[in-house]
């Protein structure tokens, strides 16, 4: 698997793993054209520049994103052509205050966008995610899954908007947001929005913001784990599935270690 840092705009083809150390950006916006089947890691690092991905017809992208490390805003745009497929996993364990904005434009007919976010907000963190999907092409499908954990007074907001435009017939869009708030001073908010301008479509959303499941906690404690150990295990278990989706073993290990350290 080829690895390189991105210094300027690139066309990515074939099986390629791209590391994107944000601190080395030279352009205001990184534009990447995806052709064929691409496996890519975007690492936001510090002060990342916006990224625009264009996914060519019948191409597929497995996108793995490592969230920012320090205070910042960041924008990711994805434009999907006919029959383009994107499977995106974002793991955000950074300690920062800022907004991540994601635009998914399902322009092409039959395009598919499958988005998953796992975010940990801890202490002074104030993280906002604004994720907008627009279905322009007919038979397009999108799924948005945002999972978050709030610890020690942090703030976490998920805003998800899915818009099916007139003409995007037989499209389907689904959103799920789940936030577990571990302490009473934490603030969690999930705002799902569906806008439907076409008939014959499928759309749904589900959002839960709440305390840890008491039955889960009791089960683990009944085996001798202290409340802190039980919470740690549940948090790790909640965020770990997204880390498991990273293709690169080194990155996976690094993220697991970061999560362990933050817990």
């Amino acid at each position: 698997m080829k690895r390189f840092s991105l210094y300027k705009n690139n066309d990515i083809k074939g099986q390629t793993l791209v590391r994107l150390p944000a601190s080395t950006y030279k352009e205001d916006q990184c534009q990447i054209l995806i052709e064929g089947h691409v496996d890519m890691v975007l690492e936001c690092g510090n002060k990342p520049k916006p990224v625009q991905l264009t996914i060519s017809p019948s191409s597929s992208l497995k996108l793995q994103i490592i969230g920012p490390k320090t205070n910042t805003d960041w924008r990711l745009k994805m434009q999907l052509a006919d029959s383009a497929i994107v499977e995106a996993w974002m793991v955000d364990l950074g300690s920062y205050e800022g907004q991540i904005t994601v635009n998914g434009d399902l322009k092409g007919s039959g395009s598919v966008l499958d988005w998953h976010l796992a975010s940990l907000a801890h202490g002074q963190d104030k993280k906002t995610y604004a994720i907008y999907f627009i279905h322009d092409g007919g038979h397009s499908q999108a799924r948005m899954t945002n999972h978050g954990i709030i610890e020690q007074g942090a703030k976490l907001t998920f805003t998800g908007s899915s818009h099916i435009l007139k003409g995007a017939t037989d499209s389907a869009t689904h959103q799920e947001a789940r936030i577990i708030v571990f302490d009473p001073n934490g603030v969690g908010r999930a705002d799902p929005v569906l806008a439907i301008d076409e008939n014959e479509v499928s759309a749904s959303h589900a959002a839960t913001v709440g305390k840890i499941n008491e039955e889960h906690l009791f089960y683990l404690q009944s085996r001798g784990l202290s409340e802190d150990e039980a919470r740690r295990l549940i948090t790790y278990g909640y965020l770990r599935p997204a880390i498991e989706q990273f293709t690169d073993a080194t990155t996976k290990t690094r993220l697991s270690q970061t999560l362990e350290a933050r817990l």
Partner: peptide
């Protein structure tokens, strides 16, 4: 005693409906 203290002091409850705990790997637990 808290629940975990009771367990560490030698009590065990085999449950009628054991909880499904998402993401927590059985062996880690």
């Amino acid at each position: 005693m808290s629940t975990d203290e009771r367990a560490r002091n030698g009590l065990f409850l085999g449950m009628q409906n054991p909880s499904e705990v998402p993401g927590v790997i059985n062996s880690d637990f």
